[in-house]
Simulated scan of single mutants.
Amino acid sequence: MPKGNYSNAARAALMALMLANRDVANTELTNDHKIRLGPADREALNDAGLLKTAMDTKPYVHRITDDGIDWCMNDLVYGEPPSNSGPLARMSAELLRRLVRHLQRRGTLANAIRSGDLELFIRAVYFDLAVKPQEWIRLARIRPMLDGEDKSDVDKALLKMMKEGKAYLAPDSNRKVLTEADHEAAVSVGGEDKHLIAIEES
């Protein structure tokens, strides 16, 4: 069993935060995922270092830690099904357990969890680097933080974000400062290499 005896709500909150891979407001957990993370659960997860909660804002904002992600990975394999769960839930949990073990052995678990959420991953990395809204950030700084995501997949996600007005891509007009990493990280749009990105806040 994973270390820590947490409630179903606490376990669900950690899973939701891991999948989101970004700051999540407490109201979003409640409204979008029907997860009510009460004070006792919140304090227990923060005390254990699995969760960081910003309590200087209303509503509170949560972010899972690296230890929290490790806990989730362990819970997926060794955790018991939710209390009072029926036979279908127990069999689903067993199927998930076997799939997780298989993906762990192949080293592809992290990518499988993030599949379909590459845009969220890019946004999370961008806002970790940006110090002000819509700041221009070099793609050469962002790509190394995407845990080896395929360049073509990242390019497609970036172009989709640009077309939807969620992100802006631009070339660096000072060609003399461009490094080899800048050239390798660039996205080609209409035959022009773009080296910088700025992203709209949600």
Rank of each mutant, 00 (worst) to 15 (best):
K3F: 03
G4F: 01
S7K: 00
N8Y: 00
A9L: 01
A10K: 00
R11I: 00
A13E: 02
L14M: 05
L17D: 00
M18K: 03
V24K: 00
A25V: 14
T27W: 00
T27G: 04
E28H: 06
T30L: 12
N31M: 13
G38F: 08
D41C: 08
D41E: 09
A44D: 14
L45D: 07
N46E: 15
D47H: 03
A48C: 05
G49P: 05
M55H: 15
D56Q: 02
K58T: 15
P59I: 02
P59K: 01
V61G: 03
D66R: 12
D67W: 10
W71L: 01
G79Q: 03
P82T: 03
S85E: 05
G86Y: 05
R90N: 12
R98N: 10
V100Q: 14
A110K: 09
N111I: 04
A112P: 06
A112D: 14
G116W: 09
L120W: 02
L120A: 10
R123C: 11
A124R: 04
A124T: 11
Y126L: 01
D128G: 10
L129D: 15
A130Q: 13
L139K: 04
R141Y: 11
R143H: 14
M145E: 07
G148K: 09
K151S: 07
D153M: 13
D155K: 00
A157N: 00
L158M: 09
L159M: 07
L159F: 05
K166M: 04
A170K: 08
S173W: 12
K176W: 08
V177E: 15
V177C: 15
L178I: 07
T179V: 03
E180G: 13
A181Q: 09
H195W: 04
I197S: 01
I197M: 06
I199K: 01
S202A: 14
